[in-house]
Design a binder for these strands. Structure first.
Lengths: 133, 133
DNA sequence: ACCATTGTACTATTGTTATAGTACAATGGT
DNA sequence: ACCATTGTACTATAACAATAGTACAATGGT
């Protein structure tokens, strides 16, 4: 379902949190979907249960998922209220401003990046189409 | 010269090593080029000198740079063009993977982001036009 | 009412990351 | 010969990451 790489120096909890957020952001996980249990995901990823629990707790705190004891953890239907603030756009500008030098250091132009992002969107749609079959 | 982000959970040494390897791989740093001194780079990046030294040592071990005591650290090899493009694309994917959850946390879709990036491209062109005057 | 399942909350331990500080070793310029 | 500069090699310390293990709390199905 998700993957983490123990050889990557990035902390496991950070890799997993990023993976889940991305899956939700790109629509791979639709609102209402139930995530694997803490213990099950720990087994699948060969990771400690505490690490998974920590990630779920972080996602819960930021309103990305909703957890019900004894039931499970679910993708939230609505984007977090915290995200819907007045300075959203300013934050986006900041995020982009940090992102651009990063990719331009790799020798990519903004047009290149747009092409890649559009490819991602296409991949999303294909996944959706698969689900409908 | 390089950048590291202390807010990124990725270890500083890993960020820096990746940045330097990428700079070399993309030709931003040609063979023979001298890297900043351990102490200077530490000051520039607001990072401990030990951390920089550790990175230089790692690059030395893998024959990416050559160090001469009292002189400096120099870029050694240029990888094959195939390796360059492979690394470039991999790093771009990484950068995008870090970027997506960041902007989606702000409630923006990939399409929104593309719109903003296209706006940036327009702004760039305007700046270019200004320079020509 | 029972109980398996789920998330949560601890303790304890080990290894990693980053820091500050100090000292030494080799080189090149003066 | 001197000495500033450079990389290297420690020590010590603090914070963080990941693990194992145990126990508890809430839920839903039987």
């Amino acid at each position: 379902m998700f993957t983490v790489d123990p050889k990557d120096p990035t902390p496991l909890y950070a890799q997993l949190e990023r993976a889940i957020r991305t899956a939700i952001a790109t629509g791979k996980l639709e609102p209402g979907t139930r995530l694997p249990t803490v213990r099950q995901l720990a087994v699948d990823l060969h990771v400690n249960a505490n690490t998974v629990a920590r990630v779920y707790a972080a996602l819960e705190r930021t309103d990305v998922v909703e957890t019900q004891r004894g039931v499970g953890t679910f993708v939230r239907t609505t984007p977090s209220p915290a995200a819907v603030t007045a300075n959203r756009e300013r934050e986006l500008e900041r995020a982009i401003s940090r992102f651009i030098p990063e990719v331009s250091a790799l020798g990519f132009s903004l047009s290149d990046v747009i092409t890649y992002l559009q490819r991602r969107i296409k991949q999303e749609k294909e996944v959706h189409a698969d689900h409908k079959r």
